[in-house]
Amino acid sequence: MGRNGWSLLGLVILLATNMILLQYTIESYMVYDHASMRLYMGIALANVGLIILLYRYWKKIEYGVKE
């Protein structure tokens, strides 16, 4: 698997993680578990940062000139 494949695999993992974190955040919201909510939001926002970095990396590979 090339660099492009690895970056897409990373994207799928981060997307799935954020989906689960959103569900956990909503569940915590319902039971007033504010400490857990903050933790899940922190991880989700860190994931957002990783997704942005990954996007820039993927774009470089995808649109880069192949020699």
Partner: peptide, 13 residues
Amino acid sequence: AGIALGLATVPFN
């Protein structure tokens, strides 16, 4: 979508 899902946790907080 990944970014949107991550940011969607903020309004709940």
